[in-house]
């Protein structure tokens, strides 16, 4: 792949900055980090181009984006939602929805079913990616809190 192929990452970054303004994010640092999450998610998606399965590609890209979002959330002491919502926007299969409707209007039901199912599968992969990372992060946080509680009890 040439440098030209990575140009969409830059577009994703800028588009996500637009989204950050739409969601009324004020702090420049937050806008930057949220947009960076969006760029990373698309970069990972592009880098995984020969993985074979599109669903796996969406899943892994979302996992990386969610990991970034959770990290930024801890660093900035802000809700992870802020970075996550904007970070996964480039992965949202808006194109799938459009092409499915296009096939439906054209009366091509087989194509409509195929594209519709594809879109649903990608959406499910994104959801699964978010949930895996968030679950693990939550488990880690709960573990840390439990340890801390035990330590304070010991001191007492």
């Amino acid at each position: 792949m040439t440098l030209q192929d990575y140009l969409p990452c830059l577009y994703a970054l800028l588009a996500c900055a637009g989204f950050a303004v739409m969601f009324e994010i004020k702090k420049p640092m937050f806008i930057l980090l949220a947009s960076a999450t969006g760029m990373v998610s698309w970069l990972v998606f592009l880098l995984l181009h020969d993985i074979g399965s599109e669903v796996a590609r969406y899943f892994l890209a979302t996992m990386v984006a969610a990991l970034f979002a959770e990290t930024f959330a801890r660093l900035m002491k802000a809700p992870a939602t802020i970075f996550l919502v904007i970070g996964i926007v480039p992965l949202v299969p808006g194109g799938g929805l459009y092409y499915a409707m296009d096939a439906l209007i054209g009366g091509n039901y087989a194509l409509f079913a195929e594209r519709g199912l594809d879109t649903a599968a990608f959406a499910a992969a994104i959801a699964a990616g978010v949930s895996v990372v968030t679950s693990i992060v939550r488990m880690a946080m709960t573990g840390r809190m439990n340890r801390r509680e035990r330590e304070t009890k010991k001191e007492e």
Binding site: A15, F19, M22, T81, L84, V85, I86, I88, V89, V92, G94, G95, L97, Y98, Y99, D102, A123, I126, A127, V130, S131, T134, S135, R138
Partner: peptide, 26 residues
């Protein structure tokens, strides 16, 4: 037409609801 529509339709996608659904399921 397709590129324009797909680009602009992104503005309407319910991103918060999608993300929060998963976080609430967890």
């Amino acid at each position: 037409t397709d590129k324009i529509v797909i680009g602009a339709i992104m503005l309407l996608v319910p991103g918060i609801a999608i993300t929060n659904v998963m976080r609430d399921v967890i």
